[in-house]
Amino acid sequence: MITTITTFALPEALTVEQAKAIFLSTAPHYTAVPGLVRKSYVLSDDGKTAGGVYLWQSRTHAEALYTDAWRARVREKYGAEPHISYFNSPVVVDNATHEIIADE
């Protein structure tokens, strides 16, 4: 599995309520993305940085999302260029399902 962390510096700080409204408007786009296990939206305490933490079945799945079109949507929605970091996630503890999941 792969975890990606996307971040972007916002041109103006957002409140949690403003961010929540924006995040809810984009969340439906992620419900059927192939290979995406989970996405968590994030906002820094000062409201100046936003992004997401994604858990993927594979790097190939992750890379399939981060297209030029995706980057353009982020720029349009948030007014900032996204930065993407990739991490191997060989073990995941899922307390919602009470599972420990290991890569094959």
Rank of each mutant, 00 (worst) to 15 (best):
M1H: 02
I2E: 14
I2N: 06
I5F: 00
T7I: 01
T7P: 00
F8N: 04
A9I: 04
L10E: 02
P11M: 10
P11F: 07
E12G: 05
E12L: 09
A13H: 04
A13T: 07
T15Y: 06
V16Y: 09
V16T: 06
V16L: 13
E17H: 08
E17S: 12
Q18L: 03
A19V: 02
K20S: 06
I22H: 00
L24P: 04
T26S: 12
A27L: 15
P28E: 12
P28I: 11
H29L: 13
H29N: 12
Y30M: 10
T31W: 14
A32D: 12
A32H: 07
V33A: 04
P34G: 07
G35M: 12
L36E: 11
L36C: 08
L36I: 12
V37N: 11
V37F: 05
R38G: 08
R38K: 14
Y41V: 13
V42K: 03
V42P: 02
S44L: 01
S44R: 00
S44C: 02
D45S: 15
G47T: 05
K48C: 10
K48R: 15
T49D: 04
A50Y: 03
A50G: 12
G51L: 13
G52E: 02
G52C: 07
G52A: 15
V53L: 15
Y54N: 01
L55M: 03
Q57P: 01
S58N: 00
S58K: 01
R59S: 07
R59E: 11
H61S: 08
A62P: 01
E63A: 07
A64E: 01
A64K: 02
Y66P: 00
T67R: 08
D68Y: 03
A69M: 13
A69F: 10
W70G: 01
R71N: 13
R73Y: 09
V74S: 10
E76W: 04
E76I: 04
K77I: 10
G79R: 01
Y86R: 05
F87I: 08
F87N: 10
N88P: 07
N88R: 09
S89E: 06
P90Y: 09
V91R: 09
V91C: 09
V93Y: 04
N95F: 03
A96D: 15
H98W: 07
E99H: 09
E99K: 10
I100G: 01
I100N: 03
I101C: 06
A102W: 10
A102C: 14
D103Q: 14
D103A: 14
D103Y: 07
